[in-house]
């Protein structure tokens, strides 16, 4: 048998890339969700803003975040490459094609779902990530009386302060931070944006209901003893719980 092709130029190699980047992004979703759940805390964003600082300044997390950006880009590029190849594999389509008889709608439309998610991602990043990293968010000061536990807060001007500090003096803890929480609150007053988020989370749900178990299938993990668990997690964790909780965030801010 002759020399074989390099793995990444093969069809299965490309699938492997899709699968691994996809699973990595799934893992990120869990972390992201757990952090963002702090938005629901009624503390004027103290915990959330602390968390946001930690996530952007702790070196190991920063490394992971670059991997994350790379994963998104690679996932998108390979999706395009594979889609183009698949298009070429059937130059003349069917006049009549009854896909619903043999497969689920979302499994056939991962590209469309993915595109919705990509549009969402761009919006999401420009609203929060970009503003946070480019110093376009307001600042806030929290004062917590350590003996009573009562916290008060007030907006501060960027001119007075830069970045982040945490000090304790006279039994009062003073936290100064970028107020991403406020940015969230502000952004989610926009009904159009809220709608986009809800739609995007629906797309994410359908993307992952197929994508999660599909990724396992691609790496060859399809064992009758465990496939049920994989499918359960794919549907309930990634298809239901995570998207609903994410979608709850804009709705929470919009309606509160």
């Amino acid at each position: 048998m002759s020399k074989s092709k390099p793995v990444l130029s093969s069809s299965i190699g490309k699938k492997l890339i899709m699968s691994l980047t996809g699973l990595f992004l799934c893992m990120f979703l869990i972390v992201h969700l757990i952090g963002n759940l702090q938005l629901f805390k009624d503390d004027a964003g103290l915990a959330f803003n602390k968390y946001a600082y930690f996530m952007t300044h702790f070196t190991p997390i920063k490394v992971v975040s670059y991997l994350l950006y790379a994963s998104v880009i690679i996932h998108v590029i390979y999706a395009i490459v594979i889609s183009l190849k698949n298009k070429a594999a059937r130059p003349i389509g069917y006049a009549s094609y009854d896909g619903s008889a043999n497969s689920k709608w979302n499994s056939r439309n991962m590209g469309i779902l993915g595109t919705v998610i990509l549009v969402f991602l761009a919006t999401h990043m420009s609203n929060f990530w970009w503003k946070y990293h480019n110093d376009q968010t307001p600042y806030i000061e929290y004062r917590t009386d350590l003996s009573t536990g009562v916290t008060t807060h007030q907006e501060i001007q960027a001119a007075d302060f830069h970045d982040y500090s945490i000090v304790s003096e006279n039994g009062v803890e003073i936290v100064k931070a970028r107020d991403l929480y406020k940015q969230v609150d502000y952004a989610f007053k926009n009904v159009g944006l809220v709608a986009l988020y809800v739609i995007a989370m629906a797309a994410l749900a359908f993307h992952l209901i197929h994508g999660f178990q599909s990724a396992f299938q691609t790496v060859g993990f399809n064992h009758k003893r465990y496939i049920g668990l994989v499918q359960f997690i794919g549907v309930w964790v990634f298809g239901v719980i995570i998207p609903i909780l994410f979608a709850a965030m804009p709705l929470y801010f919009y309606f509160r």
């Binding site: 069809s11 699938k15 499994s107 299938q217």
Partner: peptide, 16 residues
């Protein structure tokens, strides 16, 4: 390799 060379598409696990 031969499957790829023949120009078949790539599996996206639709199950069809």
């Amino acid at each position: 390799d031969q499957m790829d060379a023949e120009g078949f598409g790539n599996c996206t696990n639709t199950g069809a």
